[in-house]
């Protein structure tokens, strides 16, 4: 495992590391309307999320679909406005930025999407796709733009560059398409990269290649990366910390090793149980999984949101009171009454 020594290196400097993005008590609610008007409640997609990302740190947000991780990500990308709470980037509160400030913020945040084919406009050549953020970012000099495109493509190893510039996305393989997406995210030289399931649509043999590429870029450019995924098995190669998200809340935040080797929250344990490793013995046993499905975000359960599915539920506590974060071991935060 490469990630481990590297993580340790950085651990020593932990306290001196600068915070890049800080999220404080973030709520993203969407209003539900009845017949196009009239209030019918809220979808509480993100409901009180707090965390910091340091310079050149990779964090993973792990959760199932509908847990609010996409809404969290899009709010960080300034595509949604927070209902409550603050996002602070480089000591600037996003809600206080004017148009120009927002432009500045957007040029510092790169976005790698899940479906590489969908993420590339099918009618644009690779060159045009990569040129777009530069044009939008106000780089007027064509020569300069072409230079930066070449540089970005070399960084994602789409070489020889000239073979790819005039190609349309459908002429590229899935892995190459994802490289273009990454090149586009990197072309403005961002400080923060948001990667939304960057490998889930790719073939197994390519996944690792793309993850390694992201990891190399992260090291080389001191990037902070938010890696959003539902697949725990890819996380350990690529992140320092994991945030486990369930029904709009972060239920466990810790270093990767801590989560994988010593999961504390019952939901995290279930996720780990659910993750398969290639082993023929798997076929002989049934997996112990929590019953039911994640709750609706319109009317989440009272108390701990996982309590209706939890096998370790404490009656009268878990179903009544929302659990605060506990820190049973240093740096390992968990929102579960078992650890009070």
């Amino acid at each position: 495992m490469v990630a481990v020594p590297q993580a340790k290196d950085i651990e020593n400097k932990e306290n001196t590391r600068k915070t890049v993005l800080s999220i404080d008590d973030l709520h993203v609610w969407f209003e539900l309307k009845r017949f196009g008007f009239g209030h019918a409640g809220y979808v509480k997609a993100v409901d009180g999320v707090t965390f910091d990302i340091h310079e050149s740190e990779t964090i993973a947000v792990v959760g199932e679909s509908g847990c609010g991780k996409s809404s969290l990500m899009k709010t960080i990308l300034a595509l949604y406005k927070p209902t409550k709470g603050k996002i602070v980037f480089d000591n600037k509160d996003l809600s206080e930025l004017d148009n120009k400030g927002l432009h500045w913020y957007r040029s510092h945040v790169g976005y790698v999407q899940q479906d590489p084919y969908g993420a590339l406009a099918p009618f644009m050549t690779v060159q045009r796709i990569l040129e777009e953020p530069l044009i939008v970012g106000g780089i007027k000099d064509k020569e300069n733009r072409i230079q930066r495109i070449h540089k970005a493509m070399e960084e994602v190893k789409l070489t020889p560059v000239n073979d790819f510039l005039q190609k349309f996305p459908h002429m590229l393989s899935g892995g190459q398409q994802q490289r273009v997406v990454i090149a586009r995210a990197m072309i403005m030289e961002p400080k923060l990269l948001v990667a939304d399931e960057p490998v889930s649509m790719l073939d197994a043999s390519v996944r690792v290649e793309i993850l390694k590429l992201l990891s190399n870029l992260q090291e080389k450019h001191n990037l902070s990366v938010i890696y959003i995924t539902h697949d725990l098995s890819t996380v350990s190669y690529f992140s320092e910390r994991i945030f486990v998200m369930y029904a709009g809340n972060l239920v466990e935040k810790a270093k990767v090793r801590q989560v994988v080797d010593n999961p504390l929250h019952p939901y995290t344990m279930a996720l780990l149980t659910g993750t398969s490793e290639p082993d023929a013995k798997n076929a002989e046993t049934f997996k112990e999984l929590p019953p039911g499905e994640p709750p609706s975000l319109v009317n989440p359960p009272t108390g701990c949101r996982f309590h209706p599915r939890c096998s370790k539920v404490i009656k009268g506590l878990c179903d009544v009171k929302f659990p605060p974060e506990f820190e049973p071991e240093p740096g390992h935060l968990v929102a579960c009454w078992l650890y009070q």
Partner: peptide, 11 residues
Amino acid sequence: SVPRLHGDTEP
């Protein structure tokens, strides 16, 4: 190429 949760081999 399969990433593994446990174990130390790099994929």
